[in-house]
Amino acid sequence: MPRRTMIEAIRDAMDVSMGRDDKVVVYGEDVGFFGGVFRCTQGLQAKYGKSRCFDAPINESGIVGSAIGMAAYGLKPCVEIQFADYMYPAYDQLTQEAARLRYRSNGDFTCPIVVRMPTGGGIFGGQTHSQSPEALFTHVSGLKTVVPSNPHDAKGLLIAAIEDPDPVIFLEPKRLYNGPFDGHHDRPVTPWSKHELGEVADGHYTIPLGKAAIRRTGSAITVLAYGTMVYVAQAAVEETGIDAEIIDLRTLLPLDLDTIVASVKKTGRCVIVHEATLTSGFGAELSALVQENCFYHLEAPVARVAGWDTPYPHAQEWDYFPGPARVGRALLETMEA
């Protein structure tokens, strides 16, 4: 099976979708001729023409707002916001319009759009190239929120998102674009070609939205993670030698609660890891759900390891990023509790 980077897998997902359905259109800033600042749309304009893949003005509300109009017409726009940090001008369109169109019109109009956004830190991106705003989407009724962690999933989830009849926020951890990253910034990065999840089948396949993946089976503790933190958790587990079960959530909303609950009931312990800031982050929702559903099975308080409640700094990148050492400490403390 061919190996692809996450960038190539995402591009392949759009290529496959555009080839199968001429209603799929792709646009955003620098997305057309140039092929995107991360190369995710390279070659699509040449292959499908300017009416299927094109450059947009620098106006996020315009990109999402026009996509909603296109979806109301009957197209399936897959648009890009260059960085998740720049989605805020489109937040009105996403939360008040895309999310509610089906509901408020009782199905008279629907909004099958995908909004792709590179997300996450660990790249010296500073305050506005590192944010993880997923909790601002999971709090919105009517949206679906997806965060892939590897090329195989990225392709299958993106095709599923494009085919989904509802609006999907597709957050791509840019730190994982070229290879997995476990937080050990002082070690050489391995490319996806060396990783089994870099194997990406040709052609069409989907990974259903709303289904988590168990990355490591274990019996001592459950780790809930997504995006880059899946690899950080794996490193922390290896380094502490704890027999942890690592769940890659993949879709945050709808959430695969069954997989989470089954695991925590088995292990009796739970650590939640995300890059986003702690307070009111998605980890708070996960923690509450675990507590509500697994209270009598819990042997220790649910722990959260997250970004600090500060804007994402530049120089202090590795003091901010929740690396394997911090995750490892939380694992040990939760085991000892």
Binding site: G62, G65, S66, G69, M70, A72, Y73, L75, E97
Partner: peptide, 13 residues
Amino acid sequence: IQAVGWAMASAIS
């Protein structure tokens, strides 16, 4: 802006 998007879709189609 949604009206403009709808119109763009009509032209694309």
